[in-house]
Design a protein around this nucleic acid. Structure first.
Lengths: 191, 191, 191, 191
DNA sequence: GATGAATGAGCGTTCATTCAT
DNA sequence: CATGAATGAACGCTCATTCAT
């Protein structure tokens, strides 16, 4: 197993366990076991559990962005772009439930709160596509003049909620329903 | 201190600590300390920590419902009723940040997932007002014909998100913004 | 077993093990075992291992002082007082080898260095008998005009060394030899 | 880097780290790092950490002896020879604080105890100069008729103590004070 | 011969739960 | 009943040592 493989093996094991059982339901020893490495080995790749958790999240973001930006055409109208991003995100979550569960665990934890604080108070990075889209939407007067934070809430709030419901098996999202849901989100934010 | 007082004291202490520091940031001994009782005493009122956590949530629901139903007039049009409930809920969260934080901790944890599973798959209780409102909305053709689960997501998703942002200090919600946000939610679900 | 008994039992076990095997040769679990208590119990009496180690030293000082001051007559000549203290100290070490070994472990460790730094740089406490004796000796011109630190070295250096040699079995100190050794120390410091 | 250079590099690194942080503050990996070699390489030159620690001490002794014997004239009177050795030793410690700190760490540890036991009970080596000096001193009736062990204690006890105090910054030894301190030691042992 | 990634036993410490008082 | 001291399994993490490369 190469060095990179091992790091990924540990990351995968950690993601699975944390997604499934939360941060404290995933002891380092259990992660090591599932990754097929010794307990001490994890610490060659991640300084400690906190760092592991944060790096896992960065990895995840780096997987999501290319995916949802695939086929994204900045020249298209704002509405179409929003529908594209929303649907792509939802599809990603549905197709990668572990990633989604992990993302939720992360957001709803001190890690996520601090992360968001840095994002919102500092200069944004990462969510730039959405931020730009919202800012453009306001400028062009096609979106309600809400603070960005609220536009984010109106868009992501429902998307995350339905993704969770799908993954937990409370509903089954197929393409039609995905599109309709994202359109409903659009209804919430457009003027 | 009467038996009931003691139970409430424990519940209050637990809620505060869990809201502030999460489930694992609130050891039983610390809860007992803050409640002014012995560590063993908690177990006279709650079988174990899991039970305590679940009962805390039930308590919380029982506090929320009367509040948001105050001034709720079933005879009014659906839109008005929705706006009332949404704004009332948001106000409750803003006014009771500990309750809100606890609710979030609970929802985003195995406890919450199991709870929802029971709710959705079994015979619903608790969220009846919203459920009835949504069912009526669909029947009257004023709401989009979505599965209930999606209507919930479109309504609560954004509300919880903005409540969190307010409590974390990322935004300041005053009456105007509350009303506008709930109206935006209505835009998402109404036909 | 009363509360005090248990604290003492832990302290005794810790002292024995540390005296015999050094700080890292005495894991908390082993201390607990020898004290006949659970591993967690130690932490009810001592905040952590560092605190335990420091408290053990304080305990030890409190046992030594009364012993060597027993029969100490401040009105007697300086020489006699020095001989009394030196011999009493040596006798204490010989009679309490665990205390002595612990004291050595402590002094030769970051704990001891910091402790001495506080002692020497701050206002002295504890070693006051010796300090006063030395200061008086200099004032009365019966002792060499050395810095206090050097007088301490000339007195305690040999005493600790012979105590160690006795305890390790390299020599057997009886009363005669004790008296002669302390007199030799006096020869080193007196004018 | 030649084989010998590498061994010395490792020894130097180990000495520095152990002198500064004690035996357990100097992990093998850190020693390897500082020596600029791989972690496994250490084990080509030293069977294990215990062996490394013991060999380090032997190295140290071999550095000290030539130094203090430099200018030592066996024909001179015993007193002068003692003063020479004592002052030379003190100067060595002051000039080589890492060596001194290591020596102290070693002496005050199971390693040192076992080492001394071998020395004293077996046929002496190493400290021969002092041993011979003391034996000669007794024979010539210029020294008190103490067991050797006690003469060692009366000489080295204070010297090690003042060296430590100097290195820890509790006192500053210059030539005058060094000479006076060694003379005081002489006072302790001579008849 | 040299490497350093991998190991896993062992560390100090926490905390849900029990039970003698 | 109420208590809180006692428990010990479990945690995150370290590090001396090994061994495939």
């Amino acid at each position: 197993m190469s060095k990179l493989d091992k790091r990924d093996e540990i990351a995968r094991a950690a993601l699975e366990l944390i997604a499934g059982h939360g941060f404290h339901g995933a002891p380092m020893a259990m992660i090591a076991d599932r990754a097929g490495v010794g307990a001490g080995t994890i610490y060659r790749y991640f300084e400690n559990k906190d760092v592991l958790i944060n790096e896992l999240y960065r990895d995840l973001e780096e997987r999501i962005y290319p995916t949802i930006l695939d086929g994204y055409v900045p020249e298209k109208p704002i509405r179409e772009r929003f529908l594209h991003l929303g649907a792509a995100l939802l599809r990603y979550f549905i197709g990668n439930p572990l990633d989604f569960r992990y993302l939720e665990q992360f957001h709803n934890s001190p890690y996520g709160v601090e992360y968001r604080r840095d994002k919102i108070l500092g200069e944004n990075e990462g969510c730039d596509v959405f931020r730009e889209l919202f800012e453009e939407g306001i400028t062009q007067q096609v979106m309600k003049e809400f603070p960005l934070v609220i536009l984010f809430a109106l868009s992501f709030g429902p998307l995350l909620a339905v993704a969770r419901d799908h993954i937990l098996g409370f509903i089954t999202l197929e393409e039609m329903l995905i599109a309709q849901t994202v359109e409903a989100c659009w209804d919430a934010i457009h003027k």
